[in-house]
Amino acid sequence: MNKPIIKILGIAVLAAILVGGFVAIRRHSPTNKATRQSLKKVSVGIQTSPAMALVMVAKDKGFFTQEGLSVDIKEFTAGKFALEAFLGGSLDFAVSGDVPVTLASMQGNKFVVPAQVVRKTTNEVRVVARKDGDLNNAADYFKAKKRKIVTSIGGGPEFFTYEFLNKFGIAKDQVEIISQTPADMPAALASGSVDAIAIFDPFAFIAEKQLGDKAMTFRDESVYSELYVIEAKESVKQDPGDLEKFLKGLVAAEKFTQDSPEEAKQVVMKYTKLDKLTIDGIWDSFDFHIALTSQLGEYLNREAQWAKDSGKVKEGTATPNFKDIIWDQPLKNINPSAIQ
């Protein structure tokens, strides 16, 4: 083969790849899919986490399409990033923990919270620490020397850490609080470069599993256990159609999950790539119901105080009236008993 032919062939192959790729992208773009099926298209940002089970189940089992909604799920490494993208205008809905809601609204961002995707969680955030001799309670452990504790800054785990240390009378300068992404925490703990991690499942569970009897867990349900909520634009108050469809799809997923938990777990495993052992291990930390509880309001207010005390917000920032943010009307219409 001579050179010009090789050149032409090469260019042809490249062109074919580019055109093919372009066609594939267009084919699979949500707009086209939706238009072809004449469904209303919306986007929702979530963390790739088992806490999002109901969203994943609703999408996977077609409960959204049943309601006439084509939901495009965008995955983020943390709920707070989903919320951030939502605030920037690139998503219709987001699902995040409750702490990002407090922080974002205290910065003046405007949105509504129409529902939680878990009614409650139990010990979902906890401290997993490397065993040290026979120190077996939190107060002794953290007062014995200056420990390095890693947490997810700006989220539920950081708030938990703050409240947790407060409860056991451990002063801020008695620990070194380090920021890391949740996914990196089990490895940091296993390698011994930190003493403890304060984080939610599945990472707490993974760390416990990896360290085995080298680890000890401090939990305290009374301190705080993260709630996960939906955020929607304020405009849904005028036009709640899509939101109602979204909630209905989630409520259907709730029923499915209660009836067939094993199938629901399969869906979560598909999305999160976690193994069955891990999913089984953490499943009971979550109460998978679409709800609005008074616990949410209480948490938001406590977090607002924490934000002020820890300098996360500018001095003089007022605590928002969270009752204005939590909008229960659509959920009330669908399932009044979900409001507690």
């Binding site: 707070k80 990002p100 205290m106 800054i153 989220g155 920021s179 917000v313």
Partner: peptide
């Protein structure tokens, strides 16, 4: 990083 995580743009 922590400014970002606290929405302190």
């Amino acid at each position: 990083s922590i400014a970002h995580l606290a929405y302190r743009i």
